[in-house]
Simulated scan of single mutants.
Amino acid sequence: MSERNGDARRASVAVRAATAGADVADESFRTDLEVEYKDGKTDVVTQVDRDAQTTVIEVIEEAFPADPIVGEEDDALKQVPETGPAWIVDPIDGTNNFVNESRAFATAVAAVRDGEPVGAATVCPALSDTYRVGPEGAFRNEEPLSVSDCGDPEAATVCPTFWWDFDDREQYAGATRAIVERFGDMRRFGCAQLELAMVAAGTLEGTMTNLRANSWDTVAGVQLVREAGGTVTDLEGNRWRHDSTGLVASNGEIHEELRAATREAQFTGE
């Protein structure tokens, strides 16, 4: 199998794996759940997260048994290999939403080669939305995605993403203040992969954080934004990759204004 054909197949498997994991999550949505806490009062995990990740990995390993897999839960790898093919899995992005019966959660799977995505899927079962990206472009429920064409910051809607812990609340406040002073409106959904998908779909003009984000929270959505015509950089304006500090994702039209807002949050905490 050629590398190109292999990557096209990986893009297809990403959709199957994300759908299978999302089905596991959906079966337990709005049922009695036993909630555990990781590093804080809002950093939660359930057995459903683990079961969904197991299901995703089973689908991947059936098709590509030799590929390494990076995942959020348990003993999966935590670093993306710099060379060769690999997979990045978030079984339930937005677990806090999931346990609180909010529909804003997703299963995200990305296939990468040499650290760069070649295919990905973000499945939001409670919203009946499947986002996918591969060699043929980016889609939501088989409709092509395109970022917003809004170029006026005062008409744009922006989302601060990821979680500033309690010892970083000055930066959280700084990010919020920078957004409301520069842009028309603000949203926050508590599910980074969904927020990135919404930028790709034109529902949001941008999303941002000054923090270094986990690969499982970002890579699939970043590729959606790029393939839909958007721009994703780090704080300095360099092309974003899975080990970058800061993430600024936009429709491209408001990107420099959004990057400036993100840097304001960074400097607030220094």
Rank of each mutant, 00 (worst) to 15 (best):
V219W: 04
M186F: 09
Y172S: 14
E205A: 08
G206A: 08
I179G: 06
Y172N: 11
L196K: 02
C191P: 10
V222F: 02
L211Q: 10
A200Q: 11
F183E: 07
W216L: 02
V222L: 05
L196C: 06
N214V: 08
A197P: 06
R212V: 02
A175M: 04
A173S: 14
R226L: 09
A213Y: 07
E205Y: 09
F189S: 10
G229Y: 06
G221P: 03
G174A: 04
M208R: 05
R177Y: 11
M198T: 13
V180G: 08
R188K: 14
I179K: 07
Q223I: 05
A178L: 00
I179V: 15
T203H: 15
V225W: 03
E227V: 06
F189Q: 11
F183Q: 07
I179Y: 06
G229V: 06
G174K: 00
A200G: 13
E195I: 00
G206D: 06
T209W: 00
Q171W: 02
R188G: 15
R177C: 07
F189Y: 13
M186S: 09
F189L: 11
R177D: 14
R226P: 08
A213N: 11
S215I: 04
L194C: 05
V225N: 03
C191Q: 10
G190M: 05
G229W: 03
R212L: 04
V222T: 07
G190Q: 00
A173E: 14
Q223A: 13
N210E: 09
D185Q: 09
A197Q: 04
L224F: 06
G206L: 05
A175T: 02
N210F: 11
A200P: 09
G174F: 01
A228S: 10
V225P: 03
L194N: 03
G221R: 01
F189A: 12
T209Q: 01
R187W: 08
Q171K: 12
A213P: 13
F189T: 06
G229C: 12
G174L: 00
T176P: 08
N214L: 14
A213H: 07
I179Q: 08
R187D: 08
G202P: 11
S215F: 04
D185N: 11
D185F: 04
E227H: 12
E227P: 04
A201K: 12
A192N: 12
F189H: 11
M198L: 15
L224T: 12
E195F: 05
V219Q: 10
Q193G: 05
E195L: 01
L224V: 14
A228E: 01
T176I: 11
D217L: 06
L196V: 03
N210G: 11
G230F: 00
M186L: 13
A201D: 15
R177K: 12
A197H: 02
A192P: 07
T207E: 02
A173D: 15
